[in-house]
């Protein structure tokens, strides 16, 4: 067990606290107080805040359908006499007036596979029937059956509005709202900005 050897512990008791220590400690506390008081970080966000531009969350579909086409159907009747009969020119060659149309629809390079040769304001049903503009999915499903199947069940293509049809309207987009019928492959788009990596001061990433 420890002995009563207080000499060792108490020897220092006879030393007084040196002045310089008192001064140093006082100075340190005062300096600390001054430092603490002035240690006020700037409030608010540093640097310009990220602006979420409306185009990043623009809800409109990939293609802009021309209004007149949506409501009135195709404008073929502007040039073509609706009662004119079938064309006799090469069905693979688009006339000069239609030169702006870029046809890249895979192996489907016959205009009249889709367009109704007899009635230019309609699309071509198998057997010569007429598919109105607003029922364009009936046309596409002639070849894209599986996609049409998925479109009707909701698996393909975007739906907007209500998942709960009892609570409100569920809007479905026609095929050509997203796919350009003449070159249906999706064009690359510009991605919205990447996330700003959170960095603490001094950390490189």
């Amino acid at each position: 067990m420890a002995e009563h050897d207080w000499e060792k512990t108490d020897a220092f008791r006879n030393t007084e606290i040196p002045y310089w220590l008192l001064l140093a400690v006082s100075a340190a506390f005062v300096a600390a107080a001054w430092f603490f008081y002035s240690n006020r970080h700037a409030a608010g966000h540093g640097g310009p805040a990220f602006v979420v531009k409306p185009q990043y969350y623009d809800i409109s579909p990939a293609r802009t359908l021309k209004k007149r086409l949506e409501t009135e159907g195709m404008a073929c009747g502007d040039c073509h006499d609706p009662s004119a009969g079938p064309s006799s020119s090469d069905p693979r060659v688009a006339p000069e007036v239609h030169s702006k149309v870029v046809l890249k629809h895979g192996p489907n390079n016959r205009c009249f596979n889709c367009h109704n040769n007899a009635k230019r304001d309609f699309f071509a049903e198998d057997g010569g029937g007429q598919i109105p503009y607003l029922k364009v999915e009936t046309l596409c499903r002639k070849c894209h059956g599986t996609t049409y199947r998925d479109w009707t069940s909701g698996t393909h293509g975007r739906r907007n509005g209500y998942w709960n049809k009892a609570a409100g309207e569920q809007k479905q987009l026609p095929c050509i709202a997203c796919h350009d019928p003449h070159s249906p492959a999706f064009k690359p788009m510009l991605a919205a900005p990447a996330p700003r990596k959170y960095t603490a001061p001094g950390v490189k990433h």
Binding site: D58, I59, R158, L173, C178
Partner: peptide, 20 residues
């Protein structure tokens, strides 16, 4: 309230599906 989530409504390719 029966609506679709915001992420689904904006998707241009219709890749997002949600429901019951």
């Amino acid at each position: 309230a029966g609506k679709y989530p915001a992420c689904l409504e904006v998707c241009p390719t219709g890749s997002r599906k949600f429901g019951n």
